[in-house]
């Protein structure tokens, strides 16, 4: 099958590891060979969390310039991970900022995200922008941002997995008490990607 290299970036607590795992389980259910890589440990103390899922190849990580899809849960982290992209990459990003603490103590300036995204829009294949936090809140659970982003990935129709397979995986592999809001958030993500 055609290789698809998908990179997820976010900030500790945003839940990108969970959706990377869910996507992997959905691949197993759909008979698609896939391997996932995660970062654990020091990176979780408020730092950057990066994960990757590669379909149709063996290497679990994605090199500079080699992502087919980049999914950013936080806009400045999307920008930081742009070196993973090439001219054929599809970038899906949340627009809701989460400034790092270095900004509060004057060690850095949070960039103007819209301006920066405008700059890169033409150097990648496509750029899908959504307010994932707003959609998660609308779904009834602010922590379901990760489901919104997963929905956006599926809704962009660039991976060989459909909504139903993912929903089934969400139903079997996430906590029952959050199932309804998770599925709602997923649907909002799918719809947002369709519009974007």
């Amino acid at each position: 099958m055609e290789t698809k290299r998908i990179v997820f970036v976010g900030v500790g607590g945003q839940g990108n590891l969970l959706v990377t795992r869910l996507l992997g389980e959905a691949c197993l259910a759909a008979g698609i060979p896939a391997v996932v890589s995660e970062i654990h440990g020091m990176a979780q103390r408020g730092g950057i969390v990066e994960s990757a899922l590669v379909m149709g190849a063996r290497s679990p990580i994605v090199s500079r310039g080699e992502a087919d899809i980049l999914i950013g849960f936080e806009p400045s982290e999307t920008l930081r991970a742009l070196n993973k992209c090439n001219e054929n990459t599809v970038v899906i990003t949340n627009i809701h900022p989460l400034p790092p603490f270095t900004v509060a103590i004057g060690q850095g300036v949070y960039p103007d995200i819209e301006e920066a995204l405008d700059l890169i829009k033409n150097s990648v294949r496509s750029l899908i922008v959504l307010d994932g936090n707003e959609l998660a809140a609308k779904a009834g659970n602010p922590l379901s941002l990760n489901m919104v982003m997963l929905g956006a990935l599926v809704g962009s129709k660039i991976i060989p997995l459909d909504e139903d397979t993912l929903k089934e995986t969400i139903a079997t592999s996430t906590r029952q008490e959050f199932l309804e809001s998770n599925l709602r958030a997923f649907d909002f993500g799918v719809a947002a990607a369709g519009k974007g």
Binding site: V11, Q44, G46, G47, E66, N86, P100, G108, I120
Partner: peptide, 22 residues
């Protein structure tokens, strides 16, 4: 055959996000 990474020269300097005590 490796693809070429996009040019990130236009991206503004990003604030660091080191791991931190909670």
């Amino acid at each position: 055959t490796s693809p070429k990474a996009v040019d990130v020269a236009g991206i503004p300097d990003l604030p660091g996000r080191p791991p931190n005590l909670c």
